[in-house]
Each structure stands twice: as C-alpha cells, then as structure tokens.
Design a protein around this nucleic acid. Structure first.
Lengths: 206, 206
DNA sequence: ATCTGCCGTATACAAGTGTATACCTGATTC
DNA sequence: GAATCAGGTATACACTTGTATACGGCAGAT
C-alpha cells in the first residue's frame, strides 16, 4: 500500500516541518529528523537506507501531492487572459496551502544535490507539458507554434516557482506578485504573436 | 586597504573552490574552510567573528567582482535585438568565467539564510536598475513606460540567473540556452508594446 | 506453539563540529 | 630598544553526527 503509517510518515512530516522553518532538504540530519519525529535515531534505518534515499522519497511524496493539486486546475475560462489570471491565482493559492512542498521545490531545484535537481527538473517539465497541452487543446492562444507554447509554459513555470518564496514570505506583496506574473504571461504570449516583426513595425501597427 | 592578502584571501578562495565543487555557502564549515585553505582552524577567528560574517563577506566579495564585470557591459549596438543578443552572450560568458560567484548567487538566492537572501536580492535589483537605465538612456526600445522596462529588466535578470546553472553544467546546451534567453527578452519587450491589445487584435495586424 | 519479519529501542564508537584559552612570531609604533 | 598588535598555531572541551551491533515486542504464517 502507498498509504504511509507510523514512523515513516512521522519522519516525512518532520522533514516538512523542519524545512518550513527555513532549512533545506539536503541539510537535514538523521538524528534531527528522528528528534522532531519523536523517534529513536535508528528507527530511520528501518525505513530508509540513507539520507539520499530519504530525500528522494520526500520529493516523490510532494510530487504526488502536487500532481493531485494540478489536476484540479482544469477549469473553464472564456479567453486566454482570463485563463492566465485564474491559473496564476490557483497556483499561488496552492503554494500558500503547501508551503513545505513549495519551499523544498525552490530550494532543491538549485541545491547541492544533483540527484534531487534532476528529479525536480523532470517534475517541472512534466507540469510544463501539461500546461502546454491544456493551452493547445483548449485553443486559448491561436497562431503560435506548439513548440513555442511549450517553451513559454516552461519559462512561466520556472518564473512562478522563482517568485513562490517571495509570495509565501511577503504577504503584503502577494497581489502585486500575482499581477506581475499575469503581465509576464501575457507579454510572453503576445510577444510570441509578433516576434517576427521588428519593434518599429510593431509600433506602427499598435 | 581593500586588497586581500594572506589568510583572509585564502579562506575566501577556499570557499569559492568548495562551492564550485557543488556545495553551498551556508553549509561550509569553519574547519573545512581552514583545511582547504591550508590554515589552522582558529586562524578563521583572526578574520571573522563567525560563519555568518564570513558568508556576508564572501557575498560582498563576489558582488564587487560582478559589478566590475557588469561595467564592461556598456557597448554599442545598432538596435534592441542586437543589444539583447550581445548582452545575453556577455552575461553568459561572465558566468562561465566566474562559476563560483554564479553558483553562490543561484544557490543562496533561495537558500536557507534570510540574511544572504536579502543581500542578494538587493544586488540583483541594482543590476536590474542599471540594465533598465541603460536601455532607457540608449533608447533601445521606444514606446514602453520606464516602469515596465524596469520590470522586464528584473524578470530578465532573474530568468538568466535561473538558467545560469544549466549553462555551466550542460556545455552542449549552451547555444540553445542563449537563443532561448534571447527569445525570452524579445517576447517580453514586443509583448509590452502590444499588451493593451487583445490576442485577436494582434493577430489581425500581424 | 513456534518461527519469521517488521518496527522500535538502547548502547557504543569514531569522527567531525564550533569555540575557548594560551602561546609564538614578526612587524610597526612610540 | 621596548611595547603593541595582527596573524598564525596547538591543545582541549563539549557536543553532534552517521552508523554498527544487539535486544525486545508484536504481527501473521506455518
């Protein structure tokens, strides 16, 4: 069964707690985890071979969480701008509700462990493909090559993740960050529509 | 004198070396540093009060390095696209030549130390303002509000830093990353020129 | 009723950590 | 010429870390 019970769950929760209190996944110690979980240090070995394995497990755990979150994302929108706005609001709300997962993702994407980095990159890429697919299927933007939509999706997801920490930590800037992200997305797609034109030509027609 | 000599310099260099070998600034140990520098552990205390102070010092050190790098950036370009291309090439070349500074910046911008994070944010913001100023002064893009240019500059700098690690670690993707970054910039500015128009209106005129 | 695994515990060890105290040496300063 | 001081060293302490070994209880299968 994939349902976590007992000590293993406690260890994972301990990791999430510690990370939210501004630590990084790779810097967690075995004894530190056990302490936070209220377990004997050696219980760790009953569930994981070493800390690397633990890190990957936690990553898989939050990846699963995230996936079920993203699946709810499919909703209706009249036009692309509205879709962008709704998606941005949704994603940032998700971050607020899952601060530990968010912090892990941001920290480890550029962290010291190549293993975790690769795993996270794949995860992000999968999300980007999903986003692109959604945009293409629902024909939210017309006249842009599929490959370009995918590229912009990737950039957007990276950018949003980049802003996620600020969003969590600076409550007074949340609205500003959302608006800014919407502008980011809108400019990318509008820019893609006219990227074969020179700025002067665009200015003429605008 | 601001010229570093002897042990202090050795310690900073040791940090840069260790970080390039995939470590993070905040995770470095005092004894580890001394070992790498070939010094007695306690020599550390002759130069720094503690590891936090050391971290800030290293950050200041690379910030200075970066500034002198960015100053060379002022060069001529016929139009904005060319300027983007040259700037992108220059910045990524800088990353290649300063892998340690780059790695530190990327890691600590989202690292566990709020102190270093704030310091780096300020540093990035200063670079963004410089970039925006340059664009405005040289009138590389016309018809975009100064505040928008600054916002796009900020986004661009964040994005480039985001891609810097990949650029360092994946030599076979360097050209692709540069091209992608150029597209990013061009779309942002072109998109900004037409962001008051709906996608349909843009499509009509393109 | 016994055996086998799983899960948790207790103790122990070698190694590494940050830091305090004290000592040494070569310049610089008065 | 003596004193001061920055920079480097040696030893020591208390503490944390990952891990190995060994032990206990409780399930389910035989």
């Amino acid at each position: 069964m994939s349902v976590l019970t007992g000590g293993k769950l406690k260890l994972v929760q301990a990791a999430l707690t510690l990370i939210t209190e501004s630590r990084s996944l790779t810097s967690l110690g075995l004894r530190e985890l056990a302490r936070e979980a209220g377990l004997n240090p050696n219980t760790f070995y009953r569930h994981f071979r070493n800390l690397d394995e633990f890190g990957l497990f936690v990553l898989g755990f939050i990846a699963q969480e995230m996936k079920s979150g993203v699946r709810e994302l499919r909703r209706m929108a009249e036009n692309s701008d509205q879709a962008a706005q709704e998606t941005v609001a949704f994603v940032y709300t998700y971050f607020l509700n899952n601060p530990a997962a968010t912090t892990i993702a941001v920290r480890e994407l550029h962290g010291a462990s190549p293993l975790l980095r690769r795993a996270l990159e794949n995860q992000l890429d999968a999300s980007a493909r999903e986003m692109a697919e959604d945009i293409i299927e629902r024909q939210l933007v017309a006249g842009i090559a599929d490959s370009t939509i995918l590229e912009i999706s990737r950039m957007t997801i990276r950018y949003i993740l980049f802003r996620a920490m600020d969003y969590l930590e600076k409550p007074d800037q949340r609205l500003a960050i959302r608006r800014e992200t919407e502008r980011f997305i809108n400019r990318q797609f509008r820019g893609a529509l006219v990227e074969h034109l020179s700025p002067a030509e665009i200015a003429e027609r605008a």
